Amino acid sequence: MGKLNVFNFISLDGYYKDASNGINWHQHGQEEGEFSAKNLEYGSILLFGRITYEMMASWWPSQNAIDAMPEVARGMNQAEKIVCTNTLQYTNWQNTRIMNGDIVAQIAELKKTSPKDIAILGSGNLSTQLAEAGLINTYQIMIDPVGIGKGTPIFNGMQRQLNLKLTDTRSFKSGTVLLSYEAL
């Protein structure tokens, strides 16, 4: 039985994307890159919403990504990936399949049957939907030491309270802090 884990980064003022839906304010230095590469070694299934998928698929297979962060690019490109969408008809990023229809029921079934853990990267709308359904086991929130003023809050539109237990913290030299939580 696989666990469902969320990894997302946010600004100090609580946004996971800025007012232009961008994430270029995120500070991802060498130490954060090494952390990402190590996490990809665990072989989790990567789960994306359509918007995050399109952003990731446009970057990680590129030569620029391979040159900039070879280990992370290798892990991202080799990983099994699922994009949750009712609009995409095909994918062009290797090892990716589409999941559409009742995403909540399908993810609940995937958790029961998968020998692998599942990691949601970014994908705020998908994370919110699955958090409301009580399907997420752990949350890793990386807080960048930057305020962006306007944007989309993490768990935007959530209708229920989300109670979490802090299980670990980590500080990076850049000033970024990683908070790890377990769902209660």
Rank of each mutant, 00 (worst) to 15 (best):
K111F: 09
Q106I: 02
N64T: 15
N64E: 15
D67F: 02
N95Y: 07
G101L: 05
N86D: 11
N100S: 15
N64V: 15
N125C: 00
K81N: 10
W60R: 13
I98F: 05
T96E: 00
A119G: 07
Q106P: 00
D117H: 06
P70C: 08
G124I: 05
S114K: 10
T91A: 13
T85V: 03
T87Q: 11
A68N: 09
I141D: 12
Y90G: 00
Q78K: 08
E80P: 00
M69G: 01
Y139G: 03
M76G: 06
G134C: 15
A108F: 02
T85I: 04
L126Y: 03
A79G: 03
A105Q: 13
W93R: 14
S123M: 05
R74H: 10
S127E: 05
N95R: 14
I82Y: 10
G134F: 13
Y90C: 02
R74N: 06
Q94N: 13
T91D: 15
Q129G: 01
Q140N: 12
A108P: 01
N137S: 14
G122R: 07
S123T: 01
T91M: 11
I141L: 15
I141G: 11
M76C: 04
G75C: 04
L126W: 05
E109Y: 08
N92Q: 15
A105F: 04
P70Q: 11
T85A: 01
I120F: 06
A73G: 05
G75R: 01
I141S: 11
V104K: 08
Q140H: 12
D102N: 15
Q140E: 13
N100H: 14
T85F: 01
K81R: 12
I103C: 12
G124F: 05
M99V: 09
I103E: 09
K116A: 09
Q89D: 06
G101Y: 03
M142F: 12
T128F: 10
K116T: 02
A79V: 04
E80A: 06
M69V: 05
A105G: 07
M69E: 12
N86E: 03
K116L: 10
Q129D: 00
E80L: 02
V83D: 09
T96Q: 04
Q94I: 01
A68I: 00
S62L: 13
A131M: 14
A133L: 14
M99P: 00
S127G: 11
A73C: 07
L88G: 06
G134T: 15
